[in-house]
Nucleic acid binder design. Structure first.
Lengths: 236, 236
DNA sequence: CCCACAATGTGCAAAAATTCACAATTAACC
DNA sequence: GGTTAATTGTGAATTTTTGCACATTGTGGG
């Protein structure tokens, strides 16, 4: 725990408190995650005819309450018009600015199994400005193979060199759990700034590196806990 | 919002308050998610020599504080021995009992693209008692194809019939976002009890069905928000 | 048997996050 | 131009979650 502080939502890093200060207001950690969720329906609506949206409607679409929406947005400014609502295009632009998704980011992926492949080929990433610049795997049988997205699989030993040459900022780990910590060390040694880890272990990083752990089985266990709970209570 | 209540961690369902009551104590929502995380290192340790583990050590391995670990466990009973710690095997067994992962669950998956394929082939699921009994896709080119795991891809129109015949409890959605709501309706109409949705939209379900939405891009946006925040503050 | 040490379990305090209620503002209509 | 309806922005109250401090209990050694 010396070099790592867990942020409730799952992201972890160093000296979190400082990062969450904007002017003098503290931004609740879950707010950031919700902002990302708000942007999904806004993207959809931004194509269609609707020009404005109320906090009530946006809340419905995202499964939260409307005061929550208003409060979340109010942390960062006054984006709406009283009596009217929020302009869809403008709000989307503001949220993107807040989240820093109005700029391009450079990624690499480590571990080109089924999952790694699915992630690197995923349209949603590229569409949102996340650019995979390199793919790594330690399996000699995979190295040299070219993926549909155009990337050629590199051996893990080239990691440091490529990350620095291509200015890669974020690393995604999609290896088996056993390799995840080793890969994390390789990535951080190469100067990566943040890691999105899909291996079902909690990887440790040195000061100044961000980690977010995504664990599918945790989500499933959440579900089955509540499922069993329901049948036990005989509510349904 | 009429038929759906969002639980902070991302899981949503109906009348949540009731489910979280055990005897008279309210269980914090994040506690369940952490219990799942605690079980990972316990599984690893359960093979090796260590027989007991302290809350301090377990907390380190999971990136939380030690009072947090103790408090989380104390909601469900007294599993440790004062002055000693927790017996690894026993604690794992207790957590599995709490989470209902000591039993088998039946799943199906809808959408056999890269991601769907990666999920259904994933060892971690089967290893933990999550059994995929059916795979669906609406693409006629995919229907009839047999996956490495042995399942044959079924057309979506067979969904209701198969879910009922095989007593499938949980559905996983790995379709493009546009199809996700339609698939959700199909699943709930077929009597599914819970849905794990990987499409980047918030799907709506009728009363009595659980949903957990997993959105990779939300995790990434979380990261880039904090990353930009760091460089702006000039901390590194 | 007693004492020192280690580690859990827990009531209470603190912090964090959400919800409420309403003042403020705008648009639309007559 | 005034009145009504709609909707935001926000301080205060409430609820939820976490952290602290310590009493409690078990272990091992002399």
């Amino acid at each position: 725990m010396a070099s790592q502080v867990l942020i409730p939502s799952g992201i972890s890093g160093t000296n979190q408190a400082k990062w969450l200060m904007t002017k003098t207001k503290k931004i609740p950690v879950p707010t950031i995650e919700r902002l990302a969720r708000y942007s999904r329906p806004l993207e959809d609506l931004s194509g269609s005819g609707d020009v404005v949206i109320s906090s009530v409607r946006l809340a419905e679409l995202c499964g939260v309450t409307s005061p929550q929406v208003r409060k979340d947005l109010a942390y960062f400014g006054e984006f709406g018009t009283r009596g009217v609502g929020y302009n869809v295009e403008d709000l989307l632009k503001e949220i993107k600015k807040i989240l820093a998704t109005d700029q391009e980011w450079t990624l690499c992926i480590v571990g080109i199994g089924n999952l790694g492949n699915a992630l690197v080929e995923n349209e949603n990433f590229r569409k949102r400005g996340y650019n995979f610049l390199a793919a790594f795997d330690s399996d000699p049988k995979k190295v040299g193979h070219t993926l549909s997205c155009g990337l050629t699989i590199e051996p893990s030993r080239n990691m440091a060199q490529l990350i620095q040459k291509l200015h890669i900022e974020i690393g995604i780990i999609a290896t088996p759990p056993f390799d995840a910590q080793k890969v994390t060390n390789l990535l951080t040694d190469s100067g990566i700034k943040a890691i999105l880890n899909f291996a079902p272990i909690q990887v440790r990083v040195p000061e100044g590196c961000l980690v977010e752990n995504v664990d599918f089985t945790v989500s499933l266990e959440n579900i089955v806990y509540h499922l069993r709970d329901i049948s036990k209570k005989g509510l349904f």
